[in-house]
Design a binder for these strands. Structure first.
Length: 639
RNA sequence: GCCCACGUAGCUCAGUCGGUAGAGCAUUUGCAUGGUAAGCAAAAGGUCACCAGUUCAAUUCUGGUCGUGGGCUCCA
């Protein structure tokens, strides 16, 4: 039954098509370029294959690699391609799931024998062969019962398990050559579209993410429509590798770990310790400016404190074994709040004392499973820029607004102006009344909205005692990191029976806000190292300027200037080593020191230095005073 | 914690199919007094992560422990 149908394009223009014509053919009528670029299409809001036949009037939008959905389809097709290659090389392999992810795709595979990294090259080669075979990728719809038979005949136990859990009568299968896989689709039309593929790594992953179930082998990969894009992506991976804080941390002598001290327990070397000092001082001063009071609490506290707070019930798996002192159990503190609450409670508080904001660079110790430790970003002992605000219900929203402003200001100082904000709502396992949850959630929501901050709701991701706002920042090369968190808590004031006297002379329960802006100093510094690629701005640089004398004759002048700068509170170094100038310049550059100031005969005579900025390969003469002013201006402007 | 890989000098890495090890850089010491990304030379530096087992002999083989990396789960 022939006839014409009308296809509406995103710009509202229309194209006439034959009933039952394929998307591919219809796109050809619109333009050869679009036909070539399209991977799939969106028909009436549903993504479909290019081979899909359009039977009725419809809206149509081509999906290309440029869109997130296009990438998803492309990478998902690449994961099928990889599975086909694995199947050819290892006929006994059983496939679990193989989705696309943010930066590529993976497939979880149950293999008889373990793969080694060298096998990836073999698989890659086979993938290239299949791409060259230019196989057609075809969709088939079959009865679920038939699919179960088909996959169980093939020994695909994981697919059978998935099929058994589905409720649809009909499922879709994609075939390319001899290979077939259970898949919703859509997929690219031919294997030749997957021109540039690369397998990146190998890892273990539990079937269904459940650690009680079988560990499968996961192969990660990436694919692009052309080689150039792949090369760009590989260059990005390389760049990220060069910025790795674990590598830079060692090279720049910022921190290290020692087997003798313990896993996940960072040691701060002078360069890192001074960096921490600068950040902590900066943060503390900013808090004081905003009316926070300083708190300070010990690293251990009695078991009863954590029994009252609920940590021994809700947080034990993160706490270390108790320390026995005089027949009493003490715990290393996993959080600062219970101890800090004791400070608030030490005297009767009036409503006039609220909001009461207590701040502390508080060190906490949390047990992390050995496999999750990662440089500075995941450690077992860390210090937070932690504060707890005690306020009344009426003050809650304003306080949250203040905290939001404060957070965005702090992050902005480091150039973290791009960020994603998430509002996490009540989880299944939680405490507290519906009223309190609603109150807290809407306070967070209103604060975000009245500050005109865009956010995403993360349903059910709140903490057990209250909802929270998480802020994820984007670093210089676009990677996301989570640092800041703002949490509303009705629970702890209740558990500790915290109260204040209201204007009515009655006791009232304050609400607590837990918040950390930079989060863990360890993690934040790790992120900063990667964000700046080790090239810290002058105000943060552990060494701000290296003074290099040309010959021994100028050693005294270099030392004199160093002492002058040191006395002014800067961080200078004089490299008077018996090495060639070129060598010392190179060394200062390798250490990523922002300024190199050379002092020779001429400079001593003029009272100048020859200054070279990191990243430039020419130097400019400057009066000594000018160097001082330059560094001072950098520090004052935090650049 | 689990899966896989790995652990040789401060760092980056060779090497030993079982007979106790080497390079470059860094360090120290000489010489060279150098004008903006490595001057020349010499010396020193290792219980081959740790503990057991097999063996005439283990850094090498086996097992365990600790640690590291990539993931899973969890998270600041």
């Amino acid at each position: 039954m022939g006839g014409q149908i009308t296809i509406t394009l995103p710009d509202s223009s229309t194209v006439a098509a034959e009933r039952g014509e394929s998307i591919h053919a219809i796109l050809g009528k619109i333009g050869a370029g679009l036909q070539k670029a399209a991977l799939a299409a969106d028909v009436n809001g549903v993504p479909v294959d290019l081979g899909h036949a359009v039977e009725n009037d419809a809206s149509l939008k081509a999906i290309t690699f440029e869109s997130p959905l296009g990438k998803e389809i492309f990478w998902h097709s690449a994961s099928h391609l990889m599975a086909q290659a694995v199947r050819r090389l290892y006929p006994d392999a059983k496939f679990a799931i193989g989705p696309s992810i943010e930066g590529g795709f993976y497939y979880d595979i149950d293999m008889g024998s373990a793969l080694v990294p060298e096998d990836l090259a073999k698989i890659e080669k086979m993938m290239e062969t299949i791409v060259a075979e230019d196989l057609e990728v075809r969709r088939e719809e079959i009865k679920r019962a038939d699919a179960i038979k088909m996959f169980s005949d093939a020994g695909e136990i994981y697919k059978v398990e998935m099929l058994n859990e589905m409720t649809d009568d009909v499922v879709s299968i994609y075939r390319q050559g001899e290979f077939f896989d259970l898949c919703r689709g859509p997929h690219v039309a031919r294997t030749s579209r997957l021109r540039a593929v690369k397998l990146l790594s190998l890892a273990g992953a539990y079937w269904r993410g459940d650690e009680k179930r079988k560990m499968l082998q996961r192969i990660y990969g990436i694919a692009f429509p052309d080689k150039k894009q792949l090369d760009q992506h590989l260059a990005f991976i390389e760049e990220a590798k060069n910025r790795d804080h674990r590598k830079l941390g060692r090279e720049l002598e910022i921190f290290s770990f020692s087997n003798a001290v313990g896993a996940g327990l960072p040691l701060w070397h002078p360069n890192g310790a001074v960096l921490r000092y600068i950040l902590e001082t900066f943060s503390t001063e900013e808090h004081l400016k905003r009316g926070y009071k300083l708190f300070g609490v010990p690293h251990i506290a009695k078991a009863d404190l954590y029994r009252t707070s609920g940590h021994l019930d809700f947080y034990t798996e993160n706490m270390y074994s108790p320390i026995r002192i005089d027949d009493q159990d003490y715990y290393l503190k996993p959080m600062n709040c219970p101890s800090q609450i004791q400070i608030f409670k030490s005297s009767i508080k009036s409503y006039r004392d609220l909001p009461f904001r207590g701040f502390e660079m508080g060190t906490v110790y949390r047990y992390e499973r050995s496999g999750v430790l990662h440089g500075l970003t995941r450690v077992r002992g860390f210090t937070q820029d932690d504060a707890h605000i005690f306020c009344s219900e009426e003050q809650l929203e304003d306080e949250i607004k203040n905290v939001l402003d404060f957070t965005l200001y702090m992050l902005g100082v480091f150039g973290f102006t791009e960020r994603n904000i998430y509002l996490s709502t009540r989880p299944e396992k939680s405490v507290g009344s519906d009223r309190n949850w609603d109150l807290a959630t809407s306070a967070l929501k209103n604060a975000l909205e009245s500050n005109k901050i865009a956010y995403t709701i993360d349903p059910g991701e709140g903490v057990f005692y209250g909802p929270k706002i998480d802020i994820k920042i984007k670093d210089a090369i676009g990677r996301e990191w989570q640092c800041s968190t703002i949490q509303v808590d009705f629970n702890l004031p209740e558990r500790f029976d915290v109260n204040y006297i209201g204007s009515d002379g009655q006791k009232h329960r304050p609400i607590m806000i837990h918040r950390a802006l930079m989060g863990s100093m360890e993690r934040f510094i790790g992120i900063l190292i990667e964000h700046y690629g080790g090239k810290f701005p002058v105000w943060l640089a552990p060494v701000q300027v290296v003074l290099i004398n040309v010959s021994d004759a100028e050693a005294g002048a270099a030392e004199e200037l160093r002492l002058r700068l040191l006395g002014l509170g800067f961080r200078p170094e004089a490299d008077r080593r018996d090495e060639s100038m070129g060598y010392r310049v190179r060394d200062a550059i390798a250490r990523k020191v922002p300024y190199i100031a050379v002092i020779g005969k001429k400079e001593v005579a003029d009272g100048t230095v020859s200054v070279r900025r990191l990243g430039e390969n020419k130097s400019v003469p400057m009066k000594n005073e000018e160097l001082v002013d330059t560094i001072r201006a950098d520090v004052e402007n935090r650049r």
